[in-house]
Design a protein around this nucleic acid. Structure first.
Lengths: 266, 266
DNA sequence: TTAATAATTAACAATTTGTTAATTAAAATA
DNA sequence: TATTTTAATTAACAAATTGTTAATTATTAA
């Protein structure tokens, strides 16, 4: 027979100090945006994937030297007891950039011993997709000296804090995977878009022959089951935003594509 | 000028108690196996996906009432300061089942406030794939009263501890996704297998027409780029293990298939 | 008026599907 | 021994989809 007869008694006696517990629980966010460079009128703009990073301040609000000060890092912060890592990421995205209601996804946990000199600190990594326009009102937060958007090849050259180089590489890998396997492309696009815009977004991360060869993409795309031609009272809705001839507008529908390696095209 | 002039000084002064920290950091593992039921000689066996669960003991080693005692749960335990969640999962898999060197994958973090009555306890969820034969030597561990393999539809009826129902549903969803998109089927198969075995493994979790319709699967499968026909000094290697007529043996190669929803077959 | 441009359609051979049927080899049965 | 049964494998063929090249369609710019 045990010392405690009810779960209540056992709970009251539970000692969380029996095990060594983490010194911190944090959320980091890789914030991606795709910027459009207008090359010429009546031409689809160049699209480039960018990652938002902050430069950690040398000193904190109290004037103390900051850990990993001066290095570039993913925005993020400590998780509160009454929220999940995901909720903290949403909150921090709002705090860091002032934007909300965006696509955000947890993709990994980083807990390698020694990753943070301050102690046993666990990071939950998320990526977020933000429309370029919304990032305009971004502002430097408490700990951030600077906020900047980087090309992915520029990121490689930066001095990054903690294990953020690993996290960023995983984030990029995850966004590529999701771009190929899910309809997240829609989070980088306006509600109604033309095929060249869709191709531009996909091309920022994917490098497959069916995408690179224009004619192949344009022949297959109109019959993809998860996008529809936009109609306006029975008429096909078209636009001249990027071309002289009118181009058909498309929008994503609710179809959830499911693919497999066993019936794919190779 | 800050109070500290070097990072060393700042670090020494860093107070991990400034933030509320978690009360525990754990790893849980959904251990899957596929059991083969021989239906008749010269017939491919029925394959069924099973999940290994433990029944939490009513009392612990000290005779105290156990939290969530009597309920079924995923095996798992506390993570040590000097290891990652993944390493803890590997260690615990070894402790629980005595097996090692298996496919194991982290698929989620569970940290909803209130998920564990003992406090702010975070779980990192993994799934593992274990050959049925290796599970034979499984044994009940410290906290476990019983260890059992369950069909997925049996699991739904069990009283599960903590938020393990959510974790298990996510584990099943992840194993389906990975079965469709990666070559993990190989972890459920012998090194050399016949097409009916491969189809049996895929069918335990997938329910697509190209798989259900026998003739379609058998016509397409031989040309999949990630499996090869096994040869033995120039000759095709065949077997009679499940059929009267000899069947071709196949093995996975290193080809990493990459699929996308934009050039899939619908 | 003409050239240039991006979107779109057309055309067609090559390949891949979906489907049904035939063939093969060994075991089980009569 | 002859016949039937079974699972694997091949064959056959129409339908659909690809890969590829070329033509067509509105515009704008020259």
């Amino acid at each position: 027979m045990g010392k405690y007869n009810t779960e209540e008694e056992a709970l009251q006696n539970y000692d969380s100090k029996k095990y060594r517990t983490p010194d911190g629980y944090t959320s980091d966010i890789a914030i991606f945006t795709i910027i459009s460079e207008d090359m010429a009128p009546y031409k689809p703009p160049n699209k480039i994937l960018k990652l938002m990073l902050i430069q950690r301040a040398q000193t904190n609000a109290e004037g103390e030297l900051n850990i990993e000060g001066g290095k570039w890092a993913l925005p993020g912060g400590f998780i509160n007891e009454n929220e999940t890592a995901y909720e903290a990421a949403v909150r921090e995205l709002q705090e860091e950039t002032g934007v909300e209601g965006l696509k955000i996804k947890h993709f990994g946990t980083y807990d390698k011993p020694g990753r943070d000199k301050r102690g046993w600190i666990i990071s939950n990594a998320h990526y977020a997709i933000v429309q370029e326009s919304k990032l305009a009102k971004r502002k430097a937060a408490d700990d951030a000296a600077k906020v900047e958007l980087f090309d992915l090849h520029e990121v490689e050259k930066l001095k990054l804090a903690f294990d953020h180089e690993d996290i960023i590489n995983d984030a990029i890998w995850n966004i590529k995977k999701d771009m190929a396997l899910t309809t997240i492309a829609k989070d980088f696009l306006p509600k109604e878009f033309v095929l060249s815009e869709l191709r531009g977004v996909l091309s920022t991360v994917l490098d497959e022959p069916w995408l690179k060869i224009e004619s192949q993409f344009y022949r297959k795309a109109p019959s993809l089951p998860f996008i529809d031609k936009v109609t306006l009272n029975g008429e096909l809705k078209k636009t001249n935003k990027y071309s002289k001839k009118e181009a058909q507008l498309y929008q994503f529908n609710d179809y959830q594509p499911f693919v497999s390696i066993y019936n794919a095209n190779y």
